[in-house]
Simulated scan of single mutants.
Amino acid sequence: MKVKKIGIVSLSSGLLGENNVKHELNIGIDRIRDYGIEIEFLPHSLKGIEYLKNHPESRASDLIQAFQDDSIDMILCAIGGDDTYRLLPYLFENDELKRVVNQKLFLGFSDTTMNHFMLNKLGIKTFYGQSFLSDVCEISTEMLPYTKKYFEELIYTGRIKEIKPSNFWYDERSDFSVNRIGVSMKSHSNDGFELINGKSIFEGEILGGCLEVIYYFFDNFRYEDTTILCNKYGIFPTIKDWENKILLSETSEEKPDPAFFRRIIRALDDFGIFEVISGLLVGKPQDEIYYNEYKATLLQEISNKDLPIVYNVNIGHATPRCIIPFGINAKVNTEQQVISFNY
C-alpha cells in the first residue's frame, strides 16, 4: 500500500506554525511532494504555539477530522511537546474518537506517546519514532539516510519489516536557522543493539515511547492533573494487558538526570510491569548523555533480574531514528542484530 495523502496534525506543540520554522516547513512540503504524495495540513495545525497551547479542543478536532477523512492514508504528527494529555476529554468523554477511529498509518514520537496509548486503547496499531518537523524537514541536503530508509518503507509499503542498528549517530543540532540549511550534523560510529541483561532472543507486541511521558501515568511531576485524566479514561494498560508485551523506553531531549531516571524506573517496577513483560527495549539517549548512568540504573532498579534488556536502539530523541510498529508481534534477536515484525 503506497501512501497517497498525508495529513499533518499538531497534537502537542504548535511550533510548526511559527515564522522561524517556515524554511523547515517548506523543505518538508517539497520532500513529501517529491514522493508524489499529497500533503494536507489539518485546520489548526499551523495556528502556532500560543493558540494551540490554549486550545486543546482544536488539536483534538484535527485528529478526529484526520480519521474521518477517507482520502488521508497517513496521519503524521508535526512534532512533540508536553501536554497532549489535555486532549483526553475532547477525544474520550463522549467517545468522540472511538466513533470515528479506523486503521490508518499514524506516526509520531515524544509527547505523541500519549496519543499512541490513546489509540492502543481503541485497538489501533500505530508507528513510533519519527515526526514531520524533526525528520522530514531535516535541514541537511536530504533526510538522514537511516531515518529516510524507514520513512520510505512505511510510505511505500504501509509496514516496517525489520529494523537493524544504524552505523552512525549524530550530535543534535542547536541551530536550525536558515544559514544552517545544507550543513550536516557531526556523526559518530554506533555500536549496535546492546544486550545488557537476559536472553538474547525474545518476542511480543511492542508498546511504549518517551519515558517521561509514560511517567505522566504515575506522577503529576509536570502538570497537576495528568494522573487524574489518564486514570479517568483508563489510557494506561492494566498489568494483565502488559503480559508478554515488550516495553519500549526512550528519554527526551530534556536529558533527565540520573536521579529522575531512577525515580521513573522505580515507579514502573513498583507497578509490576517488569515482572510481566517479555523484554525491554531502550533507546539511545540523546547525544549519549547519561548513557552509562541510565544503563547502570536499569540493572540496579529492575527487580526481575531475568528480564531481557536491549540498550542503544536508534529510536526516539537521538538521531537518526527508525520506526517501530506498535501492536505487531516482534521478534528481537540481538545475536543477529535485528528486530523483525510478523504481520
Results as ranks from 00 to 15, higher is better:
Y146W: 03
Y146A: 00
Y146F: 04
Y146H: 06
T147D: 09
K148W: 02
Y150T: 11
F151R: 05
F151D: 06
F151H: 07
E152M: 05
E153W: 01
L154G: 04
L154T: 07
L154N: 08
I155Y: 07
I160Y: 09
K161S: 10
E162Q: 08
E162G: 00
E162L: 06
K164R: 09
S166T: 02
Y170A: 12
Y170S: 09
Y170V: 12
E172W: 01
R173D: 03
R173I: 02
F176P: 12
F176D: 06
F176W: 14
V178H: 11
V178T: 09
I181R: 10
M185L: 13
K186W: 08
N190I: 14
N190M: 15
N190F: 15
N190S: 15
N190H: 15
D191W: 01
G192P: 02
G192C: 08
F193L: 12
I196D: 03
N197L: 04
G198F: 02
G198C: 00
G198I: 01
S200R: 08
I201E: 09
F202E: 07
E203Y: 06
G208P: 06
G208Q: 12
E212Y: 01
E212K: 02
I214T: 05
Y215L: 13
Y216V: 04
F217A: 09
F218T: 07
F221G: 10
Y223S: 11
D225Y: 04
T226S: 14
T226D: 12
T226V: 12
T227D: 09
T227W: 00
I228F: 13
C230A: 09
N231Y: 01
I235A: 10
K240Y: 03
D241C: 08
E243A: 06
E243Q: 14
N244S: 14
I246G: 04
E250W: 03
E250F: 04
E250C: 01
T251A: 04
S252D: 04
E253G: 11
E253N: 09
E253F: 08
E253H: 10
E254N: 08
K255A: 05
P256V: 08
P258H: 05
A259S: 08
F260L: 11
F261P: 00
F261Q: 02
R262P: 00
R263Q: 13
R263E: 14
I265N: 02
R266L: 09
D270S: 13
G272S: 13
I273R: 13
E275L: 01
E275F: 03
E275N: 13
V276I: 14
G279T: 13
L281E: 07
G283H: 03
G283K: 02
G283P: 00
